[in-house]
Simulated assay, not measured.
Amino acid sequence: MTAPRTGASRLLPALAGAGAAQVALAGARSLTGRPAGAPWRRTNYAGRPVTLLGGPALALSATATAVLGAPTGTRAAAAVVGTVSGLVGGYDDLAGARPEQARDKGLAGHLRALRAGRVSAGAVKVAGIGAAAAVAALLTRDRGRGAGALVDGVLTTGLVAGTANLLNLLDLRPGRAAKVGAIAAATALGGPAGGLVSGPLGATLAVLPSDLGERVMLGDCGANALGSLLGLRLAAMPHRGARATALAVITGLTLASEKVSFTRVIEATPGLRELDRLGRLPT
Rank of each mutant, 00 (worst) to 15 (best):
R10V: 02
A268R: 05
L94Y: 07
L212Q: 01
L15E: 00
G73S: 14
R112A: 09
R277P: 01
R34S: 06
A121N: 00
L229E: 10
T74Y: 09
A186D: 04
L15C: 04
T6E: 09
A149D: 12
S210W: 11
R115L: 12
G202C: 00
A136Q: 01
H239N: 07
L167S: 05
L218N: 00
I129D: 00
S198T: 10
R5I: 15
R215Y: 07
L272I: 01
V207N: 02
A46Y: 13
G241Q: 02
A8S: 14
L205M: 00
V260C: 07
L275F: 12
R34W: 02
G7H: 05
V67G: 13
G202E: 00
V249R: 08
A225H: 03
A193V: 09
V151Q: 08
G117A: 03
V88T: 15
G109Q: 02
V88S: 07
G191N: 01
A78E: 13
L278F: 10
D220C: 11
W40A: 15
L159G: 02
L53K: 07
T2R: 14
V88I: 13
A16F: 11
Q101N: 06
I183T: 11
L196G: 05
I183W: 12
T263H: 08
A77Q: 10
A8W: 12
I129W: 06
I129R: 12
G271S: 06
R233S: 07
G73H: 15
A57C: 06
M217P: 08
L208P: 04
V249D: 06
D93G: 03
A133I: 09
G219N: 12
A62H: 00
G27F: 10
G194M: 00
R176V: 11
D104R: 07
R173L: 15
G130Y: 09
R34M: 05
N44T: 03
P174Q: 03
G117F: 05
L87D: 08
A77F: 04
D93P: 09
A256S: 10
A193M: 04
F262A: 13
A14E: 00
V151N: 15
G222N: 07
A242D: 07
L201D: 00
A28L: 15
H110T: 12
T187L: 10
P209Y: 06
